[in-house]
Computed example of a mutant assay.
Amino acid sequence: MGEWKEYRFSDFVCINPTVKLPKENISFVEMKDLNESTRYCMPSQERPLSGGSRFEEGDTLFARITPCLENGKICQVKGLKNGKGFGSTEFYVFRGKKNLSDTDFVYYLSRWEEVRNHAEKNMDGTSGRQRVPKEAFSDLYLSLPEISIQKNIVSILSVLDDKINLLHHQNATLEKMAETIFRQWFIEEAKDDWEEKKLSEIIELVGGGTPKTAIIEYWNGNIKWLSGGDIANNHKTIITNSEKSITQTGLTNSSAKLLPKYATVISARGTVGKYCILAEPMAFSQSNYGILPRYPNCFFFTYLVINHSVNLLQSSVYGSVFDTITTKTFKEHSISIPKDEVIIYKFEERVACFFKKIESNQQQIQILTQLRDTLLPKLMSGEIKVTD
């Protein structure tokens, strides 16, 4: 490969670099702040310094625990107060070494399957709580380019990631606009003669199910099947993919239900209150609820009702082991609804354009993500040549 040389990963990348942090409140990053679909993660809060990983702006946070690593929780951190922060002990912090490795290149390197597969194969510990030992990176050898080529590889992949991030931001703005219109129509301008209705009267709840995992014929079909993790990773957007899929036979021979396109799903256990819209008909597990409109075809109105009510739902969870939303939760909370249903149908028409644009953006994100993920290993291995 010419200027490419073989390096031991732990010699090429600075792992858990020393970071001196102030005593004041500092940016804190949790595992939930990392999303496999985005390059960057941002701190969810500020808190006083305690034990944990320490990092600076631009460092890569690499989840070292299962199943977070398998789920692709690897992100570059940004938006830190004073450029420094700390976080979960379950992160390794990766940074480039001066004059040897570019910090942005290190992020893409850590996402390369050669690195991830090596880390996963070297996990130790009990089943379900396995971790990657730091020593594993001393046994990983890779042929890597000089820093000028690294920067050129970053520039190629960054173009795709920047476009993906832009589309994510645009979707967040579109969703916020739809929320604002909902609040204006149904909260700020609510009339005294409107009816107070229980959420259970406005929406229809549908329970989910899981086909028997031991029966091979039930799985890996063409029906996408959502877990709570799928929903959490696509919170407040239109979901296009799932980690697992089932067959029509699996659907028929289980309590799983197939929801139509644009239905809402919400997590009811574990990470409670995460919700999203379906880009196509999908099934889902019993840890979640499907939500259908009682006003025919008013899917986006129904979604925004859930969006508006979710904080109330989260404050009313039940269960001593797992926080849980039950059917009772939806019967205990109300919202004012106009007696004239025409208003609801007009609202649905008003906001539909926002969600159709979000859907279009999600499709673009999917295409760009597939392109990036196809290019990344080819660039990292030198299969696609990049000159300095």
Results as ranks from 00 to 15, higher is better:
Glu201Arg: 09
Gly2Ile: 02
Glu3Asn: 12
Trp185Gly: 03
Lys346Tyr: 15
Met31Gln: 05
Ile277Phe: 09
Ala63Arg: 09
Gly382Phe: 07
Ser287Asp: 14
Asn222Lys: 11
Lys339His: 14
His333Lys: 13
Ala279Leu: 04
Gly228Cys: 07
Thr213Gln: 10
Ile15Cys: 02
Leu34Thr: 05
Lys23Pro: 07
Phe55Glu: 08
His333Arg: 10
Arg8Ser: 10
Phe86Trp: 14
Glu348Ala: 06
Thr247Trp: 01
Glu348Ile: 00
Thr210Asn: 01
His168Gln: 11
Arg39Asn: 12
Arg47Tyr: 08
Asp192Ala: 15
Ile74Arg: 06
Gly209Ser: 08
Ala119Glu: 02
Glu189Val: 10
Thr237Ser: 11
Ser316Tyr: 06
Asp59Trp: 09
Asn99Ser: 14
Gly96His: 03
Asn152Phe: 05
Asp162Cys: 11
Arg183Pro: 03
Lys385Asp: 08
Asn361Cys: 08
Gln150Arg: 04
Gly208Cys: 02
Trp219Phe: 03
Gly52Gln: 04
Lys356Ser: 12
Pro293Tyr: 01
Ile325Trp: 04
Glu201Phe: 07
Ser227Gly: 15
Val310Asn: 06
Ser158Met: 08
Trp219Leu: 01
Lys134Val: 11
Arg64Phe: 10
Arg111Lys: 15
Asp373Ala: 05
Tyr107Val: 01
Glu383Trp: 00
Glu36Pro: 14
Ser242Glu: 07
Glu114Arg: 15
Met31Cys: 08
Ala214Val: 09
Glu120Ser: 15
Lys78Gln: 13
Ser316Val: 02
Asp340Arg: 12
Ile266Ala: 00
Gln184Arg: 15
Ser267Asn: 04
Gln170Asn: 12
Asp162Glu: 13
Phe186Tyr: 01
Gly51Asn: 09
Gln76Trp: 03
Glu341Cys: 09
Ala172Glu: 14
Gly72Phe: 06
Asn171Gln: 05
Ile291Val: 12
Ser143Cys: 13
Gly85Trp: 02
Val159Asn: 14
Leu100Pro: 06
Asp340Phe: 09
Leu368Val: 04
Asn35Gly: 00
Ser138Ile: 07
Leu109Gln: 09
Gly79Ile: 04
Ala232Trp: 06
Trp185Ile: 12
Thr126Val: 14
Thr240Ser: 14
Asp139Ser: 15
Ser315Val: 03
Ile337Pro: 12
Ser242Gly: 03
Gly382Ala: 06
Lys339Trp: 09
Gly87Asp: 05
Gln362Ile: 03
Ser285Glu: 10
Ser37Ala: 12
Phe322Glu: 08
Leu140Met: 07
Asn361Pro: 10
Tyr107His: 11
Thr18Pro: 07
Glu188Arg: 11
Arg47Ile: 05
Ile181Asp: 04
Gln150Gly: 05
Lys121Arg: 13
Ser254His: 08
Lys236Arg: 15
Thr103Trp: 00
Thr247Arg: 00
Leu375Thr: 08
Glu24Tyr: 13
Arg183Cys: 09
Glu3Arg: 11
Ser336Asp: 12
Pro43Asn: 08
Leu312Thr: 12
Tyr289Asn: 01
Arg294Pro: 06
Glu46Ala: 06
Met31Lys: 01
Ala283Gln: 06
Ala214Cys: 10
Arg183His: 13
Ser158Tyr: 08
Met123Lys: 13
Val19Arg: 04
Leu49Asn: 03
Pro133Gly: 02
Phe137Val: 06
Cys353His: 15
Ile266Val: 11
Val106Ala: 10
